[in-house]
Simulated scan of single mutants.
Amino acid sequence: MSSDPAPTPHATAEQVEAAWHDPKLANVLYHDWEAGTYDEKWSISYDERCIDYAAGRFRAAAPWDGRPYLRALELGSGTGFFLLNLMQAGVAERGVVTDLSPGMVAAATRNAEHLGLEVEGAVVDGEHIPFPDDSFDLVVGHAVLHHIPDVEAAFREVLRVLEPGGRFVFAGEPTTVGDAYARKLGQWTWKATTTLTRLGPLQGWRRPQHELDESSRAAALESVVDIHTFDPADLERTATRAGAEGVRASTEEFAAAMLGWPVRTFEAAVPPGKLGWNWAMFAYHGWQRLSWLDEHVLNRVVPRSWFYNALITGTKPR
C-alpha cells in the first residue's frame, strides 16, 4: 500500500532503547534489519525444495483436497516464504502478504513479482487486520504467532476476515520445551564457532567483527521479539476460545531440530558462501532423514510437546 511506512534497516540507538519496552517496535526494527539477508540466513528459496517444504507443512497441519483456495492472506509473511511457495504448489491462486515490518513486505512483494505471482502487500498488525469481514477463504502464517502480543485477539481477527467455512493454517511456532533446547544449542554453537575462528588457521572462517557485533545486538532483541512459546494443547484452547471450530494442533521436528539449530547458527557465524554446495546438501538431506525419523518413529513415543515446531489449523463456523 502506498501509505505504508518506509523500512528502517539501520535503527538508531534511541530506537533500539525504546524497542526494549515495545514488542511491536522491536519486531519492526529487528525484521527491517533482517529483511535484506533473511532468505540467505534461513536458506529460503522459491524452488522445488522450499515449495515441497511449504506444501508439506500445510498438508501436515490440515486436510487439503488439491483444489486451490481462491484468495489467501498471510500474516507475518516475512519475505514471503510460506504463501509464495504455497501458491507455486497450487494451494492458493491469489494472495496478500502482510507483515508488521515494512522491509519484509517490500521483500515479499519483490519476490512475488520475480515469480510472476498475483500478490498484494501491506504493512499489517495481526491484532488489527485492515480488511473487511469474509474477505479470504484461507489465512496462513509461518513462525508469526509467537511474535504477536495478544494471540487470541489475532485469532479473532483471522476468523473475522475469513469467509464462513474458511480455514487458517499456522506452522513453525516454537513449543516451550523445544525452544529451551534449541536456544541452548544455538548459544553453544555460536560461542564455539566465534571462539575457534579467532585461531590463526581458522581466521578465514570468521566474519568481520563488526558483522558479528551487529548480529549479537540484533539477536539481543530476540528476548523482546520472541514473545511466546506454546504448549500445543494451550494453543488449541486459545484458538477455540476465539471462536474457531475443528481446531487441531500437531508438532514436528525433534531429532531434526537437534541438527537444524546448530547448522543454522554455524551458517550465520561464518562468511556467506564459505560453506558451499556440499555443505548445503549435507544440511538439507540430514534434516530430511531426521524429519523422516521424527514423523515415522519418534512421534509415536515422544510427547508432542517435546517437538520443536507446533502447527495449528481450524475453520470459521459456517
Rank of each mutant, 00 (worst) to 15 (best):
V161E: 02
P208E: 06
E163L: 14
A233S: 05
R207F: 06
A192R: 03
V247P: 12
E163M: 13
T195H: 05
G165C: 11
A182E: 08
G243N: 09
L235E: 13
R156D: 03
E252H: 07
T251V: 09
S215Y: 13
S250G: 14
L159V: 07
E152V: 14
T175W: 10
A180S: 10
A244C: 01
A233Q: 07
A249Y: 06
R206S: 07
T251R: 02
R183Y: 09
A219N: 14
T238Y: 00
T193K: 03
A249S: 14
F168K: 12
Y181R: 05
L159H: 03
Q203P: 06
T238D: 03
L235M: 14
A182D: 08
L196H: 00
A171H: 02
R206D: 02
A153K: 12
D226I: 02
G200R: 15
A192K: 01
L162G: 06
G178Q: 04
P232T: 08
E152C: 09
E214D: 15
R237V: 12
G246R: 07
R198I: 02
Q209G: 06
G165N: 06
G200M: 11
T240L: 05
A219S: 11
R183N: 06
K191T: 12
A242Q: 10
F254W: 11
L221E: 01
G178L: 11
L221K: 00
L159K: 03
Q203I: 11
G165E: 12
R206G: 01
D231A: 14
K191G: 00
A180G: 04
K191L: 10
L212W: 09
A153E: 04
T175S: 15
E157K: 01
R156P: 05
T195N: 07
